[in-house]
């Protein structure tokens, strides 16, 4: 009975893409973040083919070349590493591995975690207990340490790295999904579907999953940033990606011994990580509002006023 503005008039809705754009435009930070991420993504896809050769070309006369030498080729603008390889080109090339590992781990953990979460939330107490204990085992231990140990035992390869990162992140999705399923399955519209005779599978995938999905998308975006940081840390410790492959984390680690005379070796790849994770965080914050029907009006209102 409180103040509500839902009058019996039927509110028209705009087309999906236009609405998304409008809501992005309303949050300028998220807008810039989205554009930055698109650029990073494009560079990561075309980077190795485009600059791969250049990034591996040693140039002993240009060792630890300082940045901001605008007179040289643009790939040298951020300086060069200890073997004279252009840093900017290397950062662009390394972006592919960095994003590949992170997206691989996020997709794997999200799919497996969501699936297990749906089962844990929807099935009987016994199955649910087993799954939750499994998650507890993983959660009761710092994920980076699990990764260190497992990678040490299994040897480090991109696949192992992705798998290990994915396993440590599964509980995040599992718990969120289960908690949401437990709540949603008591909602009236699920009961209504049961009364109509809908099968469990139908209820799970037609009614529950679409409602959980926005939360999971927001979570995955945030987690992408987390996984990227974790991968960088592992590579930094020397148990992630192995040379000659490169990632941003590995580049920081390689630059570490030149800290005193060539700070830029570690600084630029670090900045690449920060900007990417920052963008992901900003976008995830935006999603939290944009995907929530109760809060969405904040963005729609602003979007209309500005555009």
């Amino acid at each position: 009975m409180s103040l509500s503005s839902t009058d019996p008039l039927i509110i028209p809705e705009q087309p999906f893409l236009k609405r998304v754009f409008g809501m992005l435009w309303a949050d300028k930070f998220a807008f810039v973040a989205a554009i930055f991420l698109i650029i990073v993504l494009v560079l990561a896809v075309i980077g190795p083919d485009w600059l791969g050769e250049l990034a591996g070309k040693q140039n002993l006369r240009g060792r630890n070349l300082a940045p901001f030498d605008w007179g040289r080729e643009w790939v040298y603008w951020l300086g060069a590493d200890a073997l004279g390889r252009p840093l900017l080109a290397r950062i662009i090339v390394a972006g592919q591995n960095t994003l590949m590992v992170a997206s691989g781990a996020v997709v794997m953990s999200a799919v497996v975690g969501t699936f297990l979460g749906l089962i844990a939330g929807f099935s009987g107490p016994r199955v649910s207990q087993v799954i939750m204990r499994l998650a507890d085992v993983i959660m009761s231990f710092p994920s980076l340490l699990i990764a260190v140990i497992v990678l040490f035992l299994l040897g480090s390869s991109i696949l192992n790295l992705v798998a290990v990162l994915a396993i440590t992140r599964i509980p995040v999705y599992l718990r969120t999904t289960r908690a949401e399923v437990l709540e949603i399955k008591e909602r009236m519209f699920v009961q209504a579907a049961r009364v109509m005779g809908a099968s469990s599978r139908r209820i799970l995938f037609r009614h529950i999953l679409p409602v959980v999905l926005p939360t999971l998308t927001t979570l995955a975006t945030l987690d992408f940033a987390y996984v990227m940081l974790a991968e960088s840390a592992l590579s930094f410790l020397g148990i992630g990606i192995q040379p000659p492959e490169i990632t941003w984390g590995l580049m920081i680690s390689q630059g570490r011994q030149y800290l005193t005379n060539a700070w830029w070796l570690s600084f630029w790849p670090g900045l690449a990580i920060i900007l990417t994770t920052l963008s992901l965080n900003l976008l995830s914050n935006w999603m939290r509002i944009a995907l929530d029907p109760v809060q969405r009006w904040r963005l729609e209102m602003k979007g209309r006023k500005n555009g």
Binding site: A225, L229, S232, A233, F236, G249, I252, S253, R256, L259, T260, W263, S266, F267, G270, I273, I274, T277, L278, L280, N281, L282, N285
Partner: peptide, 18 residues
């Protein structure tokens, strides 16, 4: 706080040392 949450600690550590 967003920037703080986005910074890799190992990078921050070596920048702080420098």
């Amino acid at each position: 706080s967003l920037i703080g949450a986005s910074v890799p600690d190992f990078w921050l550590a070596i920048v702080a040392i420098v």
